[in-house]
Design a binder for these strands. Structure first.
Lengths: 341, 341
DNA sequence: GTGAAAGCGCTAACAG
DNA sequence: CTGTTAGCGCTTTCAC
């Protein structure tokens, strides 16, 4: 329908196409009278400037890419990603970017995606979910010079911009809380240990324990992958070691862990206290008042886009790191309310 | 990095830019010798044609948009959407489209998005999640002539292309199965009744009952919204009417419903049989062997993109409708295995 | 089989 | 304040 061009609008208004362009881009140098006339015509005709033409001449596509590697297998199982994507979408809306979504699915060679991402003119910048497998792709992208923000701390390459939460401190905070409540045998169900988030939270756990003079009992440490099933299985596996409290690296896993506990006839927090991580809406549902580390997922997404926009405008060097804070949300599953009686 | 142009490659190879263009686009009229030389140079330099320039001249952006209205509040709660998006992403990869994601978030006026979608040159076509609120946006989009496929049956406008599953037949199939197992008081927890999918599944339920000569007891019908919480609340609400079986319009709600049942000390399926809808991975987890209607969410997404691609190539008229099949997956929650003893 | 030339629709100097 | 002009990088006739 809208196959009008700048030229068409210009003719109808009896001005040149530059003037119309100026009106569209809010340049000051247009008389009010002409501006009004042109604006009216634009509105009446429903004219929209051609995106590709604009992108070509201005070398800005106003599109940013979000890359989610296939190893993010909790994508359709964990509410974390949808929430993150909502935040990112919101950030894009605010800054007038279009969001291009690049899910690397099983069948696609990760190699294949590089040309699509680096093709000049299609993306102003890239948001890339940190991931071990994708790390060499990240390096290539960084070298290509395209503005790039890694979501989460990347593996090898600290010489690159990223946004993350302080997972180590957050885990320490959680475990400290457990210690302060008097628990003696504190276990953990970790995230996947081929991700920095998994590693960092685990390290925080160890660090907190050590600071309090506890030794780390490896039987109390089980690797998970953020899925509920692994939370369930992890708790089953950890139970023989007789924990009195467990720091579970995601709420989704905590739900599985609590399910395992209940099936064994164990009560939360009386028999085993639980602290989760994420604080997504599900964490405080009817039968589950999970004490958890709140991370600002949505705001994190918004911020990531703002950060990327910064790099697009001001350049990618030197690399910068944004670390967002977390906070402990104390509800019932850690047993704090019992202690206060 | 890759600020090379066709012209640069041409020079290095001692040919014209037309020839390089031909090589890139696999035109036949290039001698093997030259083709090889150019291909090698492209590979060596890592040259990528400029997307915007290409889009401008060919009037194809190779991008399709996916629009998710804000009323889809189960977006970050129900695994359905992530799975659908995976399918769509896969379809896009196959057909070499980039996927543009348009989440309409609370704060954004739905009006505001129309210009972004209809801006010429940015999108080759649009996938739009059916939704009551968005329906007028759908009409405007359709009128603008852009290739458009609605995901799910739209509300008022049958004069538009859409892809859906046969929700009515699927619900009938589910309820028939319950009837054939001898249940007498079959209830339903519906989807949101401001969506066609919610309405259709409810109508299928009624229809099946009526075909078998059952009257529809309104106390056995409760409106839900696809979230687990509403499944939980819905079951609590329906319980006084003493159902012996309940058709729950989504697995996510079924999980909540079963939770409610268990809390009341009721067994599934002995006391109340349950059939869900979706058959996402969660439906067959450790403690939950849900009988459910399988819908091919992932393939549905792939198919939607293929359909859209068809419209892009062959034109949007006349509108076509694709209806994908579903099947009943009998597991334990409906009690069929007990009957067989 | 290959090159020259035109032009997609727009922005941004540069004149005036 | 406004118009003219020159491309942005590519595809595609049209000659040869």
């Amino acid at each position: 329908m809208s196959n009008l061009t700048l030229e068409d609008i210009a003719k109808r208004c009896g001005v040149s196409r530059s003037t119309v362009s100026r009106v569209i881009n809010n340049h000051p140098n247009v008389s009010d009278k002409v501006r009004k006339r042109v604006q009216k015509e634009i509105k009446n005709t429903g004219f929209r400037p051609h995106a590709a033409a604009r992108a070509l001449v201005s070398q800005r596509s106003w599109t940013v890419g979000l890359v989610l590697p296939r190893s993010v297998n909790s994508f359709f199982t964990d509410p974390y990603y949808p929430r993150l994507i909502q935040g990112i979408a919101q950030g894009c809306n605010q800054l007038k970017y279009t969001l291009g979504l690049y899910l690397i699915t099983d069948s696609e060679d990760e190699e294949e995606i590089f040309p699509r991402l680096s093709r000049s003119g299609s993306l102003d910048g890239i948001l890339f979910q940190s991931d071990q497998i994708g790390d060499q792709l990240i390096d290539r992208l960084a070298q290509s010079g395209i503005p790039l923000v890694i979501i989460g701390r990347p593996f090898h390459n600290d010489n690159i911009s990223y946004i993350d939460i302080d997972n180590i401190s957050a885990a320490i905070m959680a475990v400290n809380h457990l210690v302060s409540l008097g628990y003696q045998r504190i276990g953990t169900i970790t995230g996947p240990l081929n991700t920095t988030v998994g590693i960092d939270r685990k390290n925080g756990y160890r660090q907190a324990l050590q600071e309090h003079g506890f030794s780390v009992d490896e039987d109390l440490v089980v690797e998970g992958d953020f899925t509920e099933d692994k939370g369930y299985a992890g708790m089953l596996k950890i139970l023989p070691a007789q924990p009195d409290a467990v720091f579970v690296a995601s709420d989704q896993m905590a739900i599985g862990a609590i399910r395992a506990l209940r099936e064994k006839g164990l009560r939360v927090p009386e028999d085993v206290a639980i602290i989760g991580f994420d604080d997504l809406p599900l964490s405080n549902s009817a039968d589950l008042h999970l004490t958890t580390v709140h991370q600002p997922v949505y705001q994190f997404g918004v911020k990531a886009v703002e950060f990327l926009n910064d790099l697009i405008i001001t350049g990618t060097t030197p690399p910068r790191h944004i670390i967002m804070g977390t906070e402990l949300v104390v509800r019932e599953s850690c047993g704090a309310h019992i202690q206060q009686l």
